[in-house]
């Protein structure tokens, strides 16, 4: 049965020339029955060239769309190619491919629509800085208040989607800081979401897309986006 599940790893990459090899190796070694595709979000470094030389499958965006647009390209690819399962997996080496099978087992066994890899269920591995954890807890509370579902790590970029959510995300996906907003969107659609504990590493290269100066903007924007999501059908 395991072999019959068509699974895709979506690797959004923006300037990840140094880490993309390690990420792909990690997937090949620890999740060999997953296909993968790199979404190159118009990187200014050699990310595309590295992928071409190594022969990795690439979706090459001609203009920089940001994380939301890049990830959505991956979901569209998954939908077009009839994948049963698609998982977002950061190109910077934060995530650990060893958890992918466990996530898929849970998705299939419990007939879920989405499984999120959460850093905070068992509180192991890199836990993010204190101020960020505070922000994440705030979103957990907000989402619980509005939807009744507890998502301990709503900002996690390691998320696995079944067919229904693939179709949903291929159709519409937020542009920037998409994670909490899109979870609320699918919860509102009646999708069932659960989490598995994962460890994450501190990023090896590159910088977070959320700098301290932007975090206030982030909190306000995402809060409004979630409230807007509640106003939609």
């Amino acid at each position: 049965m395991e072999q019959s599940i068509k699974s895709l790893v979506i690797i959004p990459a923006y300037n990840e020339e140094k880490s993309i090899d390690r990420v792909v190796e990690d997937i090949r070694n620890n999740a060999p029955d997953f296909d993968f595709v790199v979404v190159n979000d118009c990187s200014r470094d050699q990310t595309l060239q590295v992928c071409r030389i190594k022969g990795y499958p690439v979706l090459n965006l001609p203009v920089n769309l940001g994380i939301g647009g890049a990830v959505q390209t991956g979901y569209r690819y998954a939908q077009k190619n009839g994948y049963d399962v698609a998982v977002q997996f950061d190109g910077d080496g934060q995530h650990d491919a060893g958890y992918l099978r466990r996530m898929r087992d849970k998705l299939m066994a419990e007939n879920l629509d989405m499984v999120i890899g959460s850093r905070f269920l068992e509180k192991e591995g890199f836990q993010s800085s204190g101020i960020r954890r505070f922000g994440i807890r705030y979103f957990t509370r907000l989402i619980r208040m509005l939807t009744g579902t507890v998502i301990t790590d709503p900002t996690s970029g390691m998320r696995m989607a079944g067919k229904r959510v693939i179709a949903e995300f291929a159709g519409s996906y937020p542009k920037d800081y998409p994670e909490p907003e899109s979870v609320v969107h699918i919860l509102r659609q009646g999708c069932i979401v659960d989490e598995v504990p994962v460890r994450m590493r501190e990023r090896m290269e590159g910088v977070s897309s959320i700098s301290p100066g932007r975090s206030v903007y982030y909190m306000i924007k995402v809060t409004l986006a979630i409230l807007m999501e509640m106003l939609r059908k």
């Binding site: 979706l59 090459n60 965006l61 001609p62 203009v63 647009g69 390209t73 569209r76």
Partner: peptide, 8 residues
């Protein structure tokens, strides 16, 4: 852009 990437 997404259509271009997918078609490519």
């Amino acid at each position: 852009s997404q259509a271009v990437a997918l078609n490519e």
